[in-house]
């Protein structure tokens, strides 16, 4: 049977520290929030419920669900699709073919075209809709003090190293920094997974609440957990067949 990569998130292990989100940002060089786009490939839903003194506060880490029936893939108009499923079940984005029409963003039930306007908590897909090319720091070649110091990018070029805050990796489908006009989202760190490593969010989680692996392999860690506990998935009514599942939610909360 072919692989189906997926992730199980153990909500009783998750302490809501945000290490996953930061690890994702550094690994994938994602930008800061702008134009109603979060650029947080890993993000959170925070819920406060109840009335004092019976209150509860819960954190649910979110990322692309790498859905088996992904509406984003269905919506992508390009041939061959810029948003597509890999043989390993990852929902992959090719930034060369992407024309930036944002139909995927509209179609994904876990995304918003503008998180501020739609009052959405998070958006799996973000779009580079600004008029300037993103990642100015990585592209900047100007001098910091005229005629004196060089920019980080310039120094890095001479030294053959990465400019500050840019993790350089190579992948045939996506670049490590984005260009204007395309969308972006979690790609399950395929560049790492291909080399036998875990996605960086799973690597960084101090509580080991994110368990990544092949869901079709019954001996894999996530598959075993899915058997042991009754999993919950986001917006199951949308019939997207998410491959990110949540287990062991605290009682009372977690209406998602």
């Amino acid at each position: 049977m072919s692989k189906q990569y997926g992730m199980v998130i153990d909500l009783q292990k998750c302490v809501g520290c945000g290490a996953c989100a930061l690890a994702c940002k550094t690994e994938n060089n994602t930008q800061a929030r702008v134009n109603g786009q979060t650029f947080n490939w890993a993000d959170f839903i925070y819920t406060e419920e109840g009335k004092f003194p019976n209150v509860s506060y819960s954190t649910i880490p979110v990322l692309c669900n790498h859905c088996s029936d992904a509406p984003c893939v269905k919506a992508c108009p390009v041939t061959p699709k810029a948003m597509y499923k890999t043989a390993d079940g990852i929902t992959m984005h090719n930034d060369e073919r992407c024309i930036g029409c944002r139909r995927c963003q509209k179609a994904c039930p876990y995304s918003a075209t503008d998180v501020a306007k739609e009052k959405a908590e998070y958006s799996v897909i973000s779009a580079n809709i600004g008029t300037e090319a993103p990642h100015a720091a990585s592209r900047d070649t100007s001098e910091m003090i005229k005629g004196c110091t060089a920019s980080g990018a310039e120094v890095a070029k001479l030294a053959g190293a990465a400019p500050p805050y840019q993790n350089k990796y190579n992948h045939p489908d996506y670049e490590n920094i984005r260009k204007r006009g395309v969308v972006e989202k979690c790609i399950f760190c395929e560049h790492r997974v291909k080399q036998g490593m875990k996605p960086n969010c799973a690597e960084a989680c101090p509580a080991q609440a994110r368990i990544f692996g092949d869901l079709n392999d019954s001996a894999s860690e996530p598959a075993k957990l899915l058997k042991k506990f009754k999993p919950m998935r986001l917006k199951e009514e949308k019939k997207t067949n998410p491959n990110v599942a949540y287990i062991r939610s605290f009682k009372g909360s977690n209406k998602v």
């Binding site: 134009n35 108009p77 024309i99 930036g100 029409c101 944002r102 139909r103 509209k106 075209t113 809709i129 008029t131 006009g181």
Partner: peptide, 19 residues
């Protein structure tokens, strides 16, 4: 005003004025 047609146009005849 989704700007989808701006993206699909191959020649650049459509441009985003105001988002």
């Amino acid at each position: 005003g989704c700007q989808g047609c701006v993206a699909i146009c191959p020649t650049g005849a459509l441009m985003t004025g105001v988002m």
